[in-house]
Write a protein that binds this DNA or RNA. Structure first.
Ligand code: FES
Ligand code: FES
Lengths: 144, 144
DNA sequence: ATTAATTAAGACTTTTTTGTCCTAATTTAA
DNA sequence: TTAAATTAGGACAAAAAAGTCTTAATTAAT
């Protein structure tokens, strides 16, 4: 469904949000260990998220990655997916035609569109705060 | 969402079904032209679909690919996706954890599961006959 | 039986994605 | 101001996906 980069990106963002509640910054090293992802590759993804203004980075001693506490609840899953995988999942044709076009739809269009919109709505209505709080409660997990 | 191979596989299956209504076999060459896909690559995918018993092939003069006329309505999109992309889309964790596990769910689990199930239902309730007939009516298209 | 037509199979290449490693740039703390 | 810690960036490597090409095997028609 999502690329590996995007999966890591979402897991990373949730973990950073979780720590940012307490004003704690995290390093790529700690992060990769916590979400069970390849460290250098994850670092690359964090850079992309910084560029897209999903997370923030602070260089130098006591630096690391964080998310503005006040913005945690405003960051949606769709912001992360969009930053890493782009918008094909939201807008693209399910059968790979160059674009999804209502006027000349592919045979799967009507049925696919419903699912695609459902996914879109889900991603747009889920924010980092909700996801991070579930982890805090111990109800959900970022690795196994 | 789906791999290129899967997209081509679905488009190919629909086109073969469309022709099989009239007992007409199709060659990889004609097929690739009709669905706008790379010919040799598409041929490989057809082989896989034959192995999974989604379509049939007939070698020799006047041979080609076809689908048993009586089975066209019994072949579901899920059969094709399953044959080419496997079952990760139906069963896998949206955040890439090794497996989706109700007992130790990822933070996206509850919401992702709903969408995943919706996709599954859609693919399992859509058959080749329906898709091919829409094309015959001129309502939908396999290329643009 | 022979031949022509056709799919099957496997080796190969290219492109994309995933992942690693090294160095540069930046920032904070002392 | 310097040194240490840290992110940023780019070059590189490995693996997977996408795509090509050549030959073998099979089959139907003659
Ligand atoms: S045209 Fe294919 S999904 Fe809309
Ligand atoms: S555990 Fe991630 S989707 Fe079920």
């Amino acid at each position: 469904m999502f690329s590996k980069a995007c999966e890591y990106g979402i897991r990373a963002s949730i973990f950073i949000a979780l720590n940012s509640f307490g004003g704690r910054r995290v390093s790529p090293k700690e992060l990769a260990a916590e979400i069970d992802s390849p460290q250098a590759f994850t670092a690359k993804i964090l850079q992309a998220l910084v560029r897209h203004d999903v997370i923030q980075s602070v260089k130098g001693a006591y630096g690391g990655f964080e998310i503005d506490k006040n913005r945690i609840k405003t960051i949606k899953l769709s912001d992360i997916v969009d930053a890493i995988d782009g918008d094909n999942i939201y807008k693209g044709c399910g059968l790979g035609l160059k674009a999804c076009d209502e006027d000349r739809p592919c045979p799967m269009h009507d049925k696919f569109k419903v699912v695609r919109e459902e996914l879109k709505t889900m991603l747009e209505s889920t924010n980092l705060e909700t996801l991070a709080l579930d982890i805090k409660e111990g109800d959900t997990f970022l690795r196994r």
